[in-house]
Design a protein around this nucleic acid. Structure first.
Lengths: 141, 141
DNA sequence: TATAATTAGATAATGATTATCAAAATAGAA
DNA sequence: TTCTATTTTGATAATCATTATCTAATTATA
């Protein structure tokens, strides 16, 4: 059975606060891979006193306890993803959106790298770049 | 035959300056994927009047004319690579070094993604994370 | 060599992220 | 439930990478 944030936070010695739960919930309910600023904005209506610093501190803890992963698809800010499964991402070079790529098999690729490098590998991150369907349509008009 | 920076800069309407050539040369002679700050430091002895701003402006131009590629392996700064061939990188989570991974075939992986996404793909960047040989030895002691 | 246009260098500005710290909230004991 | 030690929040200052601005110097071309 999957760990929930509440238990995991307590287990690792962190306190459970409404802010932390709210930030994690935002991340579980979106596929947009929001930045700290985006999370902060989305929480404004329901948590008007939320501080941006709290968002940063919280995502750092969530990453530390393994509940989220951190992305950087070549932008000037980091993005956060509650889907911690190993999956590639694709960023639209026009509008900047970042999407998941699921059901892609890259085990051969990873195996090949593991075999050829003298690094002891612990993880990886695959980023694709291109133009999203919406922006393709828009530029066609 | 390969284009050299001098010709390419002129061709694209940029002027050829000693600073630009020096920055490009640094990048061609290293495999360390230096950041702007690192390039700046390396040039200090021979170009004591070099400005960090010039480094930033130059790498941006070099990227624009396709002579270098820009990396971000999840760090707080960008790194630059004069090897513009498509190749994965691996970063040591302990010492922070970033190495190339050559002779790895990832065409099946890329083809699979191209087939399954509705994005029009233009490029990609693959980052692996782990512990480099040196740091493995160090921690073994 | 003269000149128009671009660039370098110095530095201020920006923007993301981190650090600081007092007041408030949490969790466990009583 | 109340008390209390500890952690966290929120406000804000600090930091650090990167970008913008501007003038003197440099480049490319006539």
């Amino acid at each position: 059975m999957e760990k929930n944030v509440t238990d995991l936070l307590r287990e690792k010695g962190f306190k459970v606060t409404p802010q932390r739960l709210a930030i994690y919930k935002i991340l579980t309910m979106t596929k947009t891979h929001p930045s700290a600023e985006m999370i902060f904005s989305q929480l404004q209506p329901s948590y008007p006193t939320m501080s941006l610093a709290t968002v940063y501190k919280t995502v750092d803890i969530l990453r530390e306890i393994g509940m989220i992963q951190v992305l950087n698809a070549g932008e000037d800010s980091f993005r956060y993803d509650a889907d911690t499964s190993d999956h590639p991402h694709v960023r639209c070079m026009e509008c900047g959106r970042v999407d998941d790529l699921h059901d892609i098999d890259f085990s051969d690729f990873v195996d090949g790298v593991a075999k050829r490098t003298s690094y002891r590998l612990t993880g990886q991150q695959f980023y694709f770049y291109g133009i999203c369907p919406d922006c393709q349509k828009r530029s066609a008009n």
